[in-house]
Design a protein around this nucleic acid. Structure first.
Lengths: 223, 223
DNA sequence: CGGTGGGTTGAGGTATTTCAAGGCTCGTGG
DNA sequence: CCACGAGCCTTGAAATACCTCAACCCACCG
């Protein structure tokens, strides 16, 4: 009942299991609900809890003093976030849509980690997954064209939240842009372009539901 | 004698200590020397060893199929690199200059980590440091101007390798460019610009020795 | 109904890239 | 010893990918 593996995230399967494992270690979890746009925690705030998305979606980002924003990751159903080693959070996180999270006190986790090697190794695995994601994202941000970035984003989301071949993006164009290091107009144009190429289709009136028609061509955009 | 803390890296102090700690756990280290440009390991190769820079400098990078390169990190004296959780390396690494590294078998490390919580927590700490660096670098690559990127690079290198107020960069402009997601010409122009602003000076005939004249203005470039 | 929050599209501007030329240093070989 | 080429760096001019600004559309909602 505490850990309700509701499918969704194909990536981070490990993360999914681990909060389960931690909960088995008799640490109590509580749930909390955030309305869309609500801040969960701020950058540099003390990191007292770790979180798991039960339902909804979360963005975590850094800001420059003049408002430029870089989203480091989106957290979808099942994902764990807010896990820190130091004393403070390194990102600000906000609920993208109505989101419910499970949270646990961080100190209890640390005690368990110090006592149990397996928990420590689980934390290492989770951190490594995050690192790997960040490393791939550096390549995207540093060296890929706008079309390649949007294509990579679509493939990532497809992998992580596609149900029945159609993905319902929880985030707006501006979020996508700040994730990909672009402007929202450029993202929109890239999507239109891919649409025009017959690589993807939009469903319904809203432009947030996308179906990938040709994953292979999407993966090799620009070639 | 095995672990010879030769100053240098102010960052990653932890990393410095930890290979020492691991060596105390009676794992034998051997040294190896690479000439400049030599590959230490390739992306996707099996990760059988972990490495520590004894002397010199190393770049680790990813390549796109058409040759675009993104350097994820520079490893300087004392830094540990090549630490993986999965079976394979995620970057290619090359010696930037004549470099000697200490290396140890990875399997022995894993046995120790499974047995000793402290070693596992040390690995977690190192991985977290790497993650934090990558997170900051995503912000740089996604949202900073060329001048801000070069300034950030100089401050990072100043922190990590400045001796007596002058830093001798081991890497060429192209390496810097591929680290910052720019072209070598843009890096060169940014450095000239900072030079013209009186923020930094060049020493000697070579353009690799740099002295920071005004760290505060460098940190607030563009403001 | 009017306002707000997305989203798209066009036109023009600009930061960075691309292309090209030239200079300096250093090692090598005649 | 000098000539030569390779590697590295700088600088200028032209090209371009992406950004900025602006207009417009649509859905939703009080």
């Amino acid at each position: 009942m505490l850990v309700n593996n509701n499918a969704a995230s194909a990536s981070r399967q490990c993360a999914l299991g681990e909060l389960g494992e931690l909960s088995r270690a008799r640490i109590n979890l509580s749930e909390f609900k955030y309305r869309r746009g609500a801040e969960i925690y701020g950058e540099a705030e003390p990191a007292d809890y770790i979180y798991q998305v039960a339902n909804g979606a979360v963005r975590s980002y850094k800001l420059l003093s003049d408002g430029r924003r870089q989203i480091g990751a989106f957290h979808l159903g099942g994902d764990i976030f807010g896990l820190e080693n130091g004393p403070a959070h390194r990102f600000t996180t906000e609920a993208i849509t109505e989101t419910t999270v499970r949270l646990m006190k961080r100190c209890s986790l640390e005690h368990v980690a110090e006592a149990d090697v397996h928990v420590a190794l689980d934390l290492l695995n989770m951190t490594t997954s995050n690192l790997e994601h960040a490393e791939n994202h550096m390549l995207l941000l540093g060296r890929k064209t706008s079309l390649e970035r949007v294509a990579a984003f679509l493939l990532e989301m497809d992998r992580r939240l596609s149900a029945a071949n159609v993905m319902a993006l929880p985030m707006c164009r501006r979020d996508i842009a700040d994730y990909l290091g672009l402007t929202l107009e450029t993202v929109s144009r890239a999507l239109s372009h891919l649409h025009g190429m017959g690589i993807l289709g939009f469903i319904g009136q809203t432009q947030r539901q996308i179906v990938l028609l040709d994953r292979h061509r999407l993966a090799n955009v620009n070639l």
